[in-house]
Amino acid sequence: EEWMVEKALMVRTGLGARQIESYRQGAWIEGVHFKRVSPSGESTLRGTTWYNYPEINKFIR
Rank of each mutant, 00 (worst) to 15 (best):
F59V: 04
E55I: 06
T13D: 01
I60T: 04
G16A: 12
W50T: 04
Y23A: 04
R12P: 02
E30A: 05
E1A: 09
E2C: 10
R12N: 06
R24G: 03
K7W: 12
F59Q: 04
T44P: 12
M4Q: 02
I20E: 01
F34T: 02
R24W: 03
R36E: 13
T44K: 09
R24E: 09
F59H: 05
Q19I: 06
E21G: 05
I56A: 01
L15H: 01
G26R: 08
L9T: 02
G31I: 03
R12C: 10
V32Q: 06
I56Q: 00
V11A: 15
W50K: 04
E1R: 06
K7C: 12
T49D: 05
Y53F: 11
T44C: 08
R24V: 15
T48I: 13
G14Q: 05
Q19E: 14
K35S: 07
Y51N: 00
R18D: 15
S22R: 12
I29N: 04
A8F: 07
S40V: 11
Y51E: 00
V11I: 13
N57C: 15
G31D: 05
R18N: 11
R18S: 13
E30D: 07
L15Q: 01
P54V: 14
A8I: 10
W3R: 00
G31N: 07
I20V: 06
F59L: 07
N57Q: 15
T44V: 09
L15T: 01
R24I: 13
E42G: 11
M10W: 04
R46W: 13
Y23V: 02
V32K: 07
V11S: 11
V37C: 12
Q19R: 05
N57A: 15
S38I: 12
I60E: 03
Y23I: 02
E21H: 09
N57Y: 14
Q25L: 13
G41N: 10
S22N: 13
A8L: 12
G31R: 03
E1W: 09
L45P: 10
E55V: 05
E6K: 14
E30S: 05
V32C: 04
G31L: 04
G16E: 13
Y51D: 00
Y53G: 04
P39S: 11
F34D: 00
F34H: 03
H33V: 02
E1C: 10
T48S: 07
L9R: 01
Q25M: 13
I20F: 03
R12D: 02
G14D: 04
G31W: 06
F34I: 03
V32M: 05
M4P: 01
K58F: 07
Y51K: 00
Q25R: 13
E21W: 10
T49V: 15
T49K: 03
G16V: 10
R24K: 13
R12G: 04
P39W: 10
V32R: 05
N52A: 03
Q25W: 07
S22F: 15
V37L: 09
G14N: 05
R36I: 15
Q19S: 05
I20T: 02
E21I: 07
V11N: 12
W28K: 00
Q19D: 11
E30R: 04
I20D: 01
Y23D: 02
I56F: 01
T13A: 04
E6S: 06
T13I: 05
R18H: 14
